[in-house]
Design a protein around this nucleic acid. Structure first.
Length: 947
RNA sequence: GCGGGCGUGGCGGAAUUGGUAGACGCGCGGGAUUUAGGUUCCCGUGACGAAAGUCGUGGGGGUUCGAGCCCCUCCGCCCGCACCA
């Protein structure tokens, strides 16, 4: 041995080169073995990897390596989510082209990922900004369009008037654009939408089949889709109070039972009926304007007062033509949900109550809680939303609220429209109602299926049962350059015309400038000017590009065959590989990315690109990497690399290395640039090696919780890596000359060693399947400790028998390192069965830690005399008989408290165990000569004596 | 407000799912080796106690032979959603 230290830097580069040269991680599509697809969320090429990446990719790599060892054909690819705004920002700030910036970053990050020793199939690498990738995305956009899954409609957007672009909600901070600082305007723009709401029901239902997803994520998606069942009710408007042509108002309610508690109607400020009413009402117009300017910030919504404006219009109660309800415009009604209008029942809805109290509208309780006397039941400040029986509700009185819901639905479904609606207006009214009721679609396209279901269709019905979803269609238009162009050409005469497939891809022009705000594609002198593919007349290209979430909604499908050029996927390959068996990524994608991907896969199924619904069979959401923070007296943050932390007894002290200044140690927080508490993976890999970084990432915390990065912890991992290396060397020497054949008999010593090995094997295998990496690490420590003890003991024996001097505990080292060189089999001091068991044990150990520390494992594997790679070695085979002990030691409790142990034969009968237990001194003492009331014996577990 | 999760030594966390609480690591204490150590190795380490022992999984109560785990209740922290009718 050249050195007594494991040189990670040298070894890691060496093994990475060998893996690379032999191409052992390239996955073949024609491999007959069962498939396993493990995937980590692909990174945005921001420039450098961070510790979150290290954690994410380490976990995925462990799974990939284990599954490979277990005989699966493993697909473990990597790519780049390469479109996005940061590239354009870099272009603006540093005058570098987004493409150059992106590809430079990809090169740098790829090098970093390679230094981690990940078992990735780089032959399938894709970048979403590559026309060879986005070409297929454009094709699918057109397929979706044809299938009615893409729509063009107006929608409200956050518009930054300075940068002249749409901003995502996340990019609006305190009503201002995050870059420009300009006050953001609400604008109506015509945009492209994916009709994700068409799949609202199946997306919700299928959540129940995703049993290998975290409950939390499924719940978040369920709430996001937000299904609610209710009744769409048509209220007639009192013609005497209403502008010409407005005859009715549709509302959605989940509480039709409370109809007799109605006190008012309320419209969203941007409800079409409100707009109509405001035409001749300047005060109402002013009120609506005021609502529009209200902040959208969370704090403001929380504290916002309920405000309303009486339009003067009156609606007629569906069950009583004489009952007129005032129609308000109210600031707490949103146009996005239901019909953008409600009937208010103050007694049973807190918001309605607040509103009614403010405007003196009163309330009538109609649901009486159980055990409360209806005569005394009064609502003042707190609405009652529990269950109970109906009161003050005419024909509903006495029913449960569920029965009442049903009764109202039945009656209104059947009921003829009231005479208040003059018959001749009917046709007109129906179409108006359509517009009013489904008013949120200001640009109605004939074949569009509205989110909230079709408006009431039966001419005579007053209501219709309806399921409503909170989910909104996915607006994908972005006024940006660095994204996938939307393959549409706008023609004056033909409208929006799809780019013919032969003309795909629509590529981004490279000669663009970023010297003024807005979309460079729009500014480009020639790019957008084209001939209409249909009529040949002058037309212009769509200059919006797609949301980058589109890019990441199908990359996992492309990985299954990234070489195919004439289609997004090879149907056979994608069906063979999908779904992803284990997907790993951050919880921050719980909704958007994961929901979009689920939608996209369904849309691909509809358009014939794939044969399944759900892309991810197993999902794991990992925790963040956190680090404590350091702050200088002047308030500036100090980075961990600039800080020296010393421990002095119980206190820890942080000093700024450069100045010796004392620093305040702050709370442990997510690694972030702003707090400067980041640790650079390159530094760690350079100092300790990738294996140590990987090991530490897995060791300290359960993978779904945050892990606290500490220097001490890394050093501990480093020490353990060194220890494994020494241990493997020592074990290899003891095992030298071990027989090839498995001995027929093993000494007690050898059996004990084998039991330790196989116990560890069983536990690690089990916990890896559960992704309990931190527990696997503990098992490996335990096994290494046990092996170390055996080697120490052997060394001591050998030292004694050889009459060596010195502390026998260090004999192993003295014996093996300084002992006879090149011990051939017959000269060995150790029995053949022990040598065989030692070889088996260390071989198991190396294969157990290989997924976590692959380079060190290769080094040890070679040390054991293998000329194969441990990366290609099979997972050790378990001998279950070794896990079964001949005798078991059972804890003995007296009245539920542990007092003694008893060792009995494994198959001892209860009678034998009981007599053995009753013979124990501790038991005799406790019983004081009396007979026990009861003796509970749980086989293989415990004995409890009830005195 | 609604929904969900969590609470175990000085710290991160284990606990075969109702059966020996505290595995494993970090830290800390003691010792050995070393010219030296931020090296390596060994021993110890939940609290109280000299010991026998007693107590102990956020607080209180319950079910059970037996509860960290199940039920009720209260407290604290974290996350998600939110005028969604």
């Amino acid at each position: 041995m050249a050195s007594d230290r494991y040189n990670a830097r040298d070894a890691e580069a060496r093994w990475q080169k060998i893996w690379d040269e032999r191409g052992i991680f390239a996955t073949r599509n024609d491999d007959p073995r069962p498939k396993y697809y493990v995937l980590e969320m692909f990174p945005y090429p921001s420039g450098r990897i961070h510790m979150g990446h290290v954690r994410n990719y380490t976990m995925g790599d462990v799974v990939a390596r284990v599954k490979r060892a277990m005989g699966f054909n493993v697909l473990h690819p990597m790519g780049w989510d390469a479109f996005g705004m940061p590239a354009e920002n870099a272009a603006m700030e540093r005058k570098v082209h987004p493409k150059t910036w992106t590809y430079d970053n990809i090169a740098a990050m790829k090098k970093q990922l390679k230094s981690m020793g990940l078992s990735l199939d780089w032959s399938r690498e894709i970048a979403t900004c590559d026309p060879a990738y986005y070409k297929h995305q454009q094709k699918m956009f057109l397929d979706f369009l044809r299938a009615g899954l893409v729509e063009r409609k107006k929608s409200k957007v956050n518009w930054d008037p300075v940068d002249q672009t749409v901003l995502a909600n996340e990019q609006v901070i305190d009503d201002r654009g995050w870059r420009s600082g300009a006050l953001v305007e609400q604008r109506e723009l015509t945009q492209w939408f994916f009709a994700i709401t068409k799949f609202a029901a199946p997306l919700l239902e299928a959540l129940g089949t995703l049993d290998r997803w975290p409950e939390k994520v499924r719940l978040m998606q369920k709430n996001w889709i937000g299904r609610s069942e209710g009744l769409l009710i048509r209220f007639a408007l009192d013609q005497a109070t209403t502008p010409q042509g407005q005859t009715e108002l549709e509302v959605f309610t989940t509480r039709p039972d409370t109809l007799f508690g109605a006190k008012f109607m309320a419209l969203a400020p941007d409800h079409p009926l409100a707009t109509v009413a405001a035409k001749n009402n300047p005060a109402l117009r002013a009120f609506i304007e005021q609502c529009r300017h209200r902040g959208t910030a969370q704090a403001e919504i929380d504290t916002a007062e309920k405000l309303g404006f009486d339009t003067g219009m009156r609606a007629i109660h569906p069950f009583d033509p004489a009952w007129k309800l005032p129609v308000y415009v109210a600031n707490f009604i949103v146009m996005d949900y239901g019909t953008g209008a409600i009937f208010g029942c103050p007694a049973h809805d807190q918001r309605d109550l607040d509103f009614a109290n403010k405007y003196g509208l009163g309330n009538v309780p109609v649901v009486c809680p159980p055990g409360v006397d209806p005569k005394t039941f009064v609502i003042t400040d707190t609405a009652y939303d529990g269950d109970g029986r109906m009161i003050n509700s005419r024909f509903l009185d006495g029913m449960t609220f569920e029965e009442a819901k049903e009764e109202v639905a039945k009656r209104l479904e059947r009921r003829l429209r009231p005479a208040a609606l003059p018959a001749p207006q009917r046709g007109r009214a129906a179409s108006e109602a359509r517009q009013v009721g489904a008013g949120k679609q200001a640009d109605p396209s004939p074949d569009r299926v509205p989110r909230s279901g079709p408006p009431i269709s039966g001419e005579d019905a007053m209501a219709q049962r309806q399921v409503n979803y909170r989910l909104r269609d996915w607006g994908i238009s972005r006024q940006r350059y660095w994204g996938c162009p939307i393959p549409i050409i706008h023609c004056e005469t033909c409208g929006a015309v799809p780019v013919p497939e032969k003309d795909l891809p629509v590529t981004l022009p490279e000669d663009v400038t970023f010297d003024r705000p807005g979309n460079p594609l729009d500014h480009h002198p020639t790019w957008k000017h084209v001939a209409c593919p249909q009529c040949g007349g002058p037309a212009r290209r769509e200059t919006d590009t797609m949301d980058t979430f589109v890019d990441s909604s199908w990359y996992f499908e492309r990985f299954t065959d990234p070489w195919i050029t004439n289609a997004p996927t090879d149907r056979q390959m994608v069906n063979a590989w999908m779904p992803v068996d284990q997907y790993i990524g951050g919880i921050e994608h719980a909704i958007l990315h994961l929901l979009y991907s689920r939608f996209f896969t369904r849309a691909m199924r509809e358009t014939g690109h794939i044969g399944l619904d759900e892309p991810f069979a197993g999902l794991f959401t990992q925790g963040m990497v956190v680090h404590e923070t350091y702050r200088r007296a002047n308030g500036e943050w100090a980075a961990p690399a600039e800080v020296k932390v010393e421990t002095d007894g119980d206190t820890r002290r942080a000093t700024l290395i450069a100045t010796g200044e004392q620093l305040a140690i702050g709370p442990i927080e997510k690694m972030s640039k702003s707090k400067r508490n980041t640790v650079d993976p390159d530094d760690i890999i350079d100092t300790y090696g990738a294996d140590v970084a990987r090991w530490f990432m897995l060791s300290d915390s359960p993978p779904d919780r945050d892990v606290n990065w500490t220097e001490k912890g890394v050093q501990g991992a480093w020490r353990f890596a060194q220890r494994l290396w020494r241990l493997a060397g020592e074990a290899a020497e003891i095992a030298q000359g071990a027989p090839h054949e498995r001995p027929s008999r093993f000494s007690a010593e050898a059996t004990a060693l084998r039991k330790a090995a196989h116990t560890a094997l069983a536990r690690v295998t089990d916990d890896i399947e559960k992704l309990h990496f931190n527990v696997c690490v503990a098992h490996i420590y335990e096994f290494a400790n046990a092996l170390n003890a055996v080697i120490g003991e052997l060394g001591a024996q050998k030292a004694l028998s050889e009459g060596s001097k010195g502390d026998p505990r260090y004999g192993a080292k003295a014996g093996s390192r300084g002992g006879s060189d090149g011990p051939s089999g017959s000269e060995s001091a150790y029995a053949p069965d022990l040598r065989w068991a030692m070889r088996e044990a260390v071989s198991i150990l190396v294969r157990l830690f290989h997924p976590m520390m692959p380079h060190l494992a290769e080094e040890c594997w070679a040390m054991l005399g293998h000329d194969t790679l441990v990366a290609q070695a099979a997972w050790p085979e378990l001998e279950p008989t070794l896990l079964v002990e001949e005798t078991v030691t059972l804890p003995v409790q007296i009245n539920g408290r542990k007092r003694a142990d008893v060792t009995v034969a494994r198959d001892a009968g209860n009678a034998d165990i009981e007599s053995a237990v009753l013979a124990l001194d501790a038991v005799k003492r406790a019983l004081e000569g009396k007979k026990p009331k009861k003796v509970i014996i749980v086989p293989q577990r415990i004995v409890n004596v009830v005195a």
